[in-house]
């Protein structure tokens, strides 16, 4: 195929121009990468808090995988390290620094946790602290990468970074549900379920609040109609609401007083992660730029 996509030309006259560069085609790799790194940071934290090593390990693996997939999005992946050049102004730079701090320190801490050396040694403690600093950076950077886009009101919200942190925690709790399914029955299931329910409630609340705050803005309303009845409605209702909320909420709530077994936990974890991926996809695909003519028009 030698011709450019027709959307390039049709967008030239669009009043509400859709954001495409982080939403369409190969940008799906960016969506997956951002989803994985957020969930991975969450898995790392929750695994540490509740003492579920497998969740931390899954979290670390998710961040590594997310980073590798991210490379596939770049036009010049071999130049990726150049993205470290501007941490003073660019959140992408800060994110890369955070990942490069997180991955080796978390890996060394995990090596200690699996018996290579004592997790109480000074070295392990330093690795743990550095991994937590890196993790915090990963949690933060994604939301800000989007929120700084002033021309895309769906993203340009002070709530977006917080909302993405809660999504990362929910993803981490979902990794913990999966880890739980493969762990001995003595593990504290209740703590994982509570984390997941709390993170889910926070994410849904923040998402709703963010949309409610943006309702005055015509461009946000445009994005909302794309979510509700436009081209991404299937991903929003089928992927996020049904697959990512209704199914795992039902399973996790059921499991609070009746065991749903490992299979149930596994399904809850996987559907939750699938829903988060759909949420991320929707947030990227429904994004729309402010109209060029603005309130003043050009007359």
């Amino acid at each position: 195929m030698n011709r450019p996509t027709p959307s390039i030309y049709s967008d030239l006259g669009a009043v509400y121009r859709p954001e495409r560069v982080w939403a369409e085609g190969r940008a799906i790799t960016l969506v997956i990468a951002h989803f994985l790194s957020g969930a991975g940071a969450g898995g790392w934290l929750i695994g540490l808090i509740i003492g579920l090593r497998l969740a931390s390990l899954l979290g670390l693996a998710a961040v590594v995988l997310g980073g590798a997939i991210h490379l596939g999005f770049l036009g010049h992946p071999e130049r990726a390290l150049r993205m470290m050049a501007k941490p003073q102004s660019s959140w992408i730079s800060r994110g890369l620094w955070s990942m490069l701090l997180f991955v080796p320190t978390a890996a060394l801490y995990v090596a200690g946790a699996y018996g290579a050396w004592s997790t109480r040694s000074a070295f392990s403690v330093v690795m743990l602290v550095l991994s937590l600093v890196g993790m915090a950076g990963i949690f933060l950077y994604k939301g800000f990468v989007y929120a700084v886009a002033r021309a895309v009101p769906l993203w340009h919200s002070p709530l977006l970074p917080v909302s993405y942190i809660s999504a990362g925690l929910r993803g981490g709790a979902a990794l913990a549900l999966i880890g739980l399914a493969f762990s001995p029955s003595g593990q504290d299931r209740h703590a994982v379920q509570t984390w997941w329910l709390a993170a889910t409630a926070a994410m849904v609340f923040l998402f709703a609040l963010e949309l409610a705050m943006g309702l005055d803005d015509k461009t946000v309303r445009r994005s909302l109609s794309a979510l509700a009845e436009g081209s991404v409605a299937w991903a929003f209702f089928g992927g996020f609401v049904l697959f990512g909320l209704v199914v795992p909420v039902a399973l996790v709530i059921t499991s609070l007083d009746a065991s749903i077994g490992s299979a149930g936990l596994l399904i809850a974890g996987i559907t939750s992660l699938g829903g988060d991926l759909a949420y991320k996809y929707c947030m990227n695909t429904a994004a729309t730029y402010v109209p060029l003519l603005g309130p003043r028009g050009i007359a």
């Binding site: 954001e19 560069v21 770049l74 036009g75 010049h76 150049r82 993205m83 992408i92 021309a151 730029y289």
Partner: peptide, 16 residues
Amino acid sequence: EKCVGCRACMTACPYH
């Protein structure tokens, strides 16, 4: 020679 093709600048430009 420095551009990696991350496209952050495209999402940041209000003027397309």
